[in-house]
Structures are given as C-alpha cells and as structure tokens.
Amino acid sequence: MAATTVVTSPISQIADATRVSGHVEASRSGIWVGIFAIIMSFAALTSALLVRQGSGEWSHIVIPSILYANTLILLLSSVTMEMSRRALAKSAGVTAWIGITLLLGLSFVAGQYLAWRHLAAQGLYLATNPNSSFLYVFTGMHALHLLGGIAVLVYLLGRVIGGYTSLRPHLLDNTAVYWHFMGGLWLYLLFVISTRL
C-alpha cells in the first residue's frame, strides 16, 4: 500500500491501481534494499578495521573536532528533511525546506573537507598510518554516499520548482529514509572513529 494520499489526475489507459502502487512500493523496497547493501559494505570495512587493529602497529590520533560540528549539521538536516515532507503534505514551503536541507547537506560535506584539510595540515595523509587510512576511507565513503543523496535533492528541488504536482510524495519519502540513514550511519562511524582510531 502506498501510504500517501495522491492528487487525482487522469489515469493513463495502461495503468491500473495495483500496478502503480507496485511501483511506489518497489521504490521503497529499493531504498531499503540499498540501505541494507550499504550497511553490509560498512560492516565489511568495520571488520577490516578490527582485524587491522588486532595486528598491532596501532597508535591513536586526535580526531578533528570539526567532525562534531558537522554531526550537528547533519542531524539538523534530518529535521529539515522532515519539515519538507510536512510541507509537501500541506503544499506549502516545500522549496524552502528542501533548499535548506540541501544547503545543510552541502555544508556537511564542506565541513568534512575542512576536516581532511585539518588532518593534512598535521601531516596525516591517507597512507600515513592505519588510523589515518581508516579515517579517510570511512569519511570519504560516507561523503560519497551522501553526495548521492544530495544529487537526488537537487533533482527534487528542480521538480518542486517546476510545480508541486510533479513531485511524487513517495520520492521525497524515500529520499528522507535514505537521508536519515546517512545521518544514522554517520553517528555510527563517528562512534567507531572516536573510540577506535
């Protein structure tokens, strides 16, 4: 069942209701399945970290404090993402909320970039030591996935600017699921980074 109410429009001759709801549901399944695969990838990376740590030659590094600020930004963006969903239901202010979410997402990525610069200034590059390798891999992979979400937000924003009717609510819902997952994943990574690296 598609959980959302939908604007009435002429139904194309081919479409039948179950079929369309099938596609709505498929895209939701798709998101969850994708999330599952991403979890699996990061689980593999985590186990690599644990094995690597077990093999000694491990010295802790101080993680850049800007990461905590970035965390706040990302969490905030989850809130604004929820606001955009509400706005869509009320058909008011969607553009603004999606725009804000997008900006916050971009500032998170920019913040991560600053963190890398900060590490580099300390002489910590990707290959310097195991901790820095994992730090860059974790943050880099997360940022890459987040950029995927940002790309979708840009697309959605284009849709909204083109008029509310052309924004399918389930699209926004799915993006929100992914976006929240990115936030959750980041919290997990931050935990791993701050306790292990």
């Binding site: 939908v6 002429p10 479409a15 709801s21």
Partner: peptide, 12 residues
C-alpha cells in the same frame, strides 16, 4: 482508496 497520477506509471 488508491488513486494515482499519470507520472507514477512507470511504463515507458
């Protein structure tokens, strides 16, 4: 009740 928009129809 299920209602739909034409755009949701994936058929190409």
């Amino acid at each position: 009740m299920e209602q739909t928009q034409p755009q949701s129809v994936h058929v190409h």
